[in-house]
Simulated assay, not measured.
Amino acid sequence: MTPALLLSLVLTQSPELELHYTATSLQEGADPAKRALDSYDFTQFEPSGKTEHLYVGVDEANLRQTAAADGAVVTTLPLGAAVRVLERAPERLKVGEYVNHWYHVEYVDPQGNKVLTGWLFGNTLTPFRFEGDFDNDGEQEVATVVMSNDFKIRVRVLEPNVKPPRRVSSVDIVPAGQAYMSVDGGAAKVTLVPAKTAGLALVQVDSAPEACSDYSTTYVSYTVPGNKKGVLGKAKLALEVSGLSDPPNISSYKVTFQPKQQGLTVVRTNSEEDESGKEVKTTERTKYKLADGVFSEVKASGAMAETKP
């Protein structure tokens, strides 16, 4: 594979970097529109230096002259456009179905010929932006990750050579712990698995709520039938695995890719106490095969048990 086909990470990310969006869970039948603004918690961005950027996580985002949903449009920004935060408006507001702040940002066009400033609502911004040949067609796609208004983790992939509005495919991921927490939503940490590691480029999304012992890893793929150029493909959930960290009950996993075989192996280790208080640990190995951007289970080994006093 040539260097042009290898996935490149545009943003240098620290392990602590994450994006979150939550709100207190409503009672059954309650009207979401009446949820108090202070019940929301979300990532807040600070003014950045000249070399520090955030990215537009939606396509065709309106950069506005004022911090208002009806403000005049300065320009329209594509998914993945880099912006620099100049100021965060102090008041949290509800715009559409989102609660967030307005941000005064600076945008420089890709040619570096024009510098524009304006306002973007916070839900359109993300620290996660990746560029690479996701579908192995020889062209570079752009992927971003944002939180949706219904508290899911949304991965979007854009085909730059397809005209809007039909040039983006998206897929949603449910954050871990939703069945046991008193809040909707959660946090996401995102990395890229390059094609040389997995057989195809994957967006890896890790979800591990602080208030819950559940955690998960989800891989998202993007494929185009026949690897045709200039055609919008489909973002897919390639694989989802989950674990538990609630001593003495622990369920962990390790994913190992076999790119030459177009597959992967998940080794899951479960640990719990029996009635006598002894630790019982079991290990299970499951093989998966890649087809059309999705890893499907092909073989699971029998569980191997080990008991410790």
Rank of each mutant, 00 (worst) to 15 (best):
K228V: 12
A179W: 03
Y180G: 08
Y288I: 04
V183W: 04
V241D: 13
Y253W: 15
G185L: 03
G233V: 07
P164F: 05
Y288T: 05
Q204C: 08
G233L: 11
S169W: 10
G233T: 08
A201E: 13
G230L: 02
N227W: 08
K299S: 04
Q258D: 15
K254F: 14
L239I: 03
Y180V: 10
E284D: 14
V266W: 01
V174L: 10
G277R: 09
D246W: 01
G185M: 06
K189L: 14
P225S: 09
M181P: 08
P247I: 00
K299F: 04
A208E: 00
V203T: 02
L232V: 01
K234S: 12
G277T: 07
V190Y: 09
S169V: 06
C212W: 07
Q258N: 14
A195I: 13
E297M: 05
R285A: 06
K236P: 11
Q261N: 15
K234A: 02
K289S: 13
Y219V: 03
G233R: 04
A179N: 12
R166N: 15
D214Y: 09
S271W: 01
L202H: 08
Y222L: 02
G230W: 10
T197Y: 14
E297D: 01
R166A: 11
V193K: 13
S216L: 00
V267I: 11
L232W: 02
T269Q: 04
D184Y: 14
L290A: 00
V168C: 11
S182W: 11
P165H: 00
Y215E: 00
S216Q: 12
S271A: 05
A188E: 06
A187T: 11
A195N: 15
